[in-house]
């Protein structure tokens, strides 16, 4: 694949109550955003085990987006606060383990923020394009 035509693949774990609904709103509102994101719906950002993020990264996904409710808005009261700590730890571990932690994004996007969802995917696609393909794409010995 020529570098110029590189299209990043982004795996997104979105919470059912806020970000997934926000993505839905972006669609029903016909807001344009890049088709580079593959969405997986979860009930809560607090249910994102680090393994879910690591597996696509090691298999060559160019970015992983975790989307949850804004602080204070979690449907389960505290799932997003726990997710915040878990993702901060995950990124610190990735950085120390020799990987690019900036391929992992955590964003709070509410059910009413269809525009913010589209904007986030646009920004992330652009940022991952600038980074180029995830080196793990070619690394078989992991």
């Amino acid at each position: 694949m020529a570098e110029a035509s590189f299209e990043p693949k982004i795996v997104a774990f979105l919470c059912n109550w806020c970000t997934y609904t926000g993505a839905d709103l972006a669609g029903t509102s016909r807001i344009q955003y890049p088709p580079n994101v593959r969405i997986i719906r979860l009930m809560c950002s607090g249910s994102v085990d680090p393994t879910y993020v690591l597996k696509p990264l090691l298999d060559g996904a160019d970015g992983v987006l975790i989307g949850g409710c804004h602080p204070g808005d979690c449907h389960y009261q505290s799932g997003n606060y726990k997710a915040r700590r878990r993702i901060i730890a995950l990124k610190e571990i990735l950085k120390n383990a020799g990987y690019d932690e900036d391929r992992v994004w955590l964003r709070w996007i509410s059910a009413s923020e269809g525009g913010r969802f589209a904007e986030t995917v646009t920004q992330m696609t652009k940022a991952m394009k600038e980074k180029g393909p995830n080196p793990m794409r070619r690394k078989w010995a992991v």
Partner: peptide, 22 residues
């Protein structure tokens, strides 16, 4: 096919990185 080759047993580094996280 995707990577050209795939280390087995699979998910070895996933194991270590997950254990680090946990």
């Amino acid at each position: 096919r995707r990577k050209g080759a795939y280390r087995l047993p699979a998910d070895t580094m996933l194991f270590h990185l997950t254990r680090l996280n946990h």
